[in-house]
């Protein structure tokens, strides 16, 4: 199937051909039809192509492969393959609880109205650090702000496996505290094995069967 990026590239290619025609034969616009053509070629198509291309770029930037472009993210990428269901991203990735091709994005964007925009904004900051800043060691990377429970709850709230989980019910108001973010789902003793890249060289890995 054609990806959005391919469609974007093809459409932009078409727009480019039209623009070049006007750029090299501006005399075309001496006829009335030529003026309409120039308007389509220099206004309508370029803006449509930019719009289509922009959405294609937004899609590409959700790809796991996109996030792992920078070498510093390699260990976080490997952590999806840790052969131990106690590791949160690994358990979600390997069992297809999240789409594998958008694994990082699915957990690392917040599901609020402007969540997509704020994720992109953080992403721009990552690009800045990658090319102009001091790149930390993978194990020293921290999130800019604590991981919000709301992201986990976006999928888990209301589900039986969350609401009726015995470990969640052991403490009378735990579920309430989780929902109001008073307590993090990742508190120690709870879901606290996440990427654990500091110890990743001791892990064994699951091999994805193609």
């Amino acid at each position: 199937m054609l990806s959005l990026a391919t469609i974007g590239a093809l459409f932009t290619g078409m727009a480019l051909a039209l623009v070049l025609l006007v750029a090299f034969r501006p005399e075309l616009t001496r006829a009335r039809g030529g003026k309409v053509f120039a308007f389509v070629a220099l206004f309508v198509f370029p803006l449509l192509a930019t719009w289509t291309g922009g959405s294609a770029q937004m899609e590409s930037s959700k790809q796991t492969q996109f996030c792992l472009s920078c070498h510093v993210m390699a260990d976080h990428g490997r952590s999806l393959h840790i052969d131990d269901p106690g590791y949160l991203p690994a358990a979600h990735f390997q069992n297809r609880r999240i789409p594998r091709e958008q694994a990082c994005f699915t957990c690392h964007s917040d599901y609020t109205y402007f969540g997509g925009v704020s994720s992109k904004w953080r992403g721009l900051r990552h690009v800045y650090v990658q090319y102009f800043g001091a790149i930390p060691k993978p194990a020293e990377i921290r999130l800019y702000s604590p991981f919000p429970n709301s992201t986990c709850l976006h999928c888990h709230e209301g589900s039986r496996s969350f609401e009726e989980e015995s470990a969640h019910l052991r403490d009378a108001d735990l579920v309430k505290r989780l929902k109001s973010s008073e307590q993090s789902c990742m508190s120690s003793g709870c879901h606290d094995f996440i990427h654990d890249v500091g110890n990743i060289n001791d892990a064994t890995f699951w091999k994805e069967t193609p």
Binding site: T12, A15, V19, P26, A49, Q63, F66, S69, C70
Partner: peptide
């Protein structure tokens, strides 16, 4: 018109190249 066309064309060309590569 021709100059505007060349600038738009340069921009579109860069856009096309950027669609062929999934990278920040």
């Amino acid at each position: 018109l021709s100059a505007a066309g060349v600038i738009v064309a340069a921009g579109l060309l860069i856009q096309i190249l950027s669609h062929l590569w999934i990278h920040p």
